[in-house]
């Protein structure tokens, strides 16, 4: 197979791959930011003392975790138009990714929050700080610090998840491979190049994760 591996085609398509690489990056990046926001809100709701609010967040998180991302993606892609909502595919894609990762982020943050010694919350309560004040100044700053490594893990998952967006015709890395397969009948060149680009992102994120863990060890009490 290697003898027939056509490097020239890859070079020819490299500018296209570069565009797709950037598309993957901004689709994942945008969804990551969205997921952080959704995650913080969902986590705060989940930990709320109101049973209704906590249940609503719980239903959201459990539904996401018990169903595949692809089904969620199709749910929005096919479902929103039937409600009369027309969105560009990219928006639908980011929406699905954001809601999906948001649920996992909520659980990561929750684990971080619950890892904080309860004594501190008692100390904060004893000085008269309200629930919101305790969350904002005492709990969340520490929880987020602890949560960074698993969050980076979720970022890696998110980049891989973004590949599914190719199935709703969004042009990103995996779609590049599909296009090379359908246009030029070269699935090997197509998908292996795609894989290489994903691996570049993966190894960079992994390195960043190692680096940030080293820094965190020095900061921890």
């Amino acid at each position: 197979m290697l003898e027939t591996f056509n490097f020239r085609v890859i070079v020819e398509y490299l500018p296209f791959y570069w565009k797709c690489f950037l598309a993957t990056l901004w689709l994942s990046g945008g969804s990551l930011l969205g997921a952080l926001v959704v995650g913080v809100i969902a986590c705060a709701m989940r930990l709320s003392e109101s049973r209704i609010i906590s249940r609503v967040a719980g239903v959201y998180i459990e539904s996401i975790r018990s169903t595949p991302l692809l089904a969620q993606l199709y749910f929005f892609y096919f479902g929103l138009p039937s409600l009369g909502i027309r969105m560009p595919e990219e928006a639908t894609g980011i929406l699905a990714l954001t809601l999906n990762s948001g649920a996992y982020m909520a659980e990561i943050i929750r684990a971080g929050v619950q890892s904080i010694a309860y004594g501190q919350i008692e100390a904060a309560m004893s000085s008269g700080l309200s629930y919101l004040q305790r969350m904002r100044y005492i709990v969340l700053p520490q929880a987020l610090g602890v949560s960074i490594p698993p969050m980076l893990g979720q970022a890696i998952v998110l980049v891989k998840d973004s590949a599914l967006l190719s199935l709703i015709s969004i042009v990103e890395l995996t779609r590049a491979g599909q296009i090379l397969t359908s246009d030029r009948f070269m699935p090997a060149e197509g998908f292996l190049t795609t894989a290489v680009f994903y691996l570049i992102i993966y190894y960079i994120l992994k390195a960043f994760s190692h680096w940030s863990q080293k820094r965190l060890i020095f900061r921890g009490a």
Binding site: Q120, S126, S130, A221
Partner: peptide, 20 residues
């Protein structure tokens, strides 16, 4: 309780200082 707790200082066995 906020008003009451503002008037009471509580010192714990485990200190419970905020490490950050």
């Amino acid at each position: 309780m906020t008003r009451i707790r503002a008037e009471i200082g509580f010192v714990f066995q485990q200190f419970n200082l905020y490490p950050h």
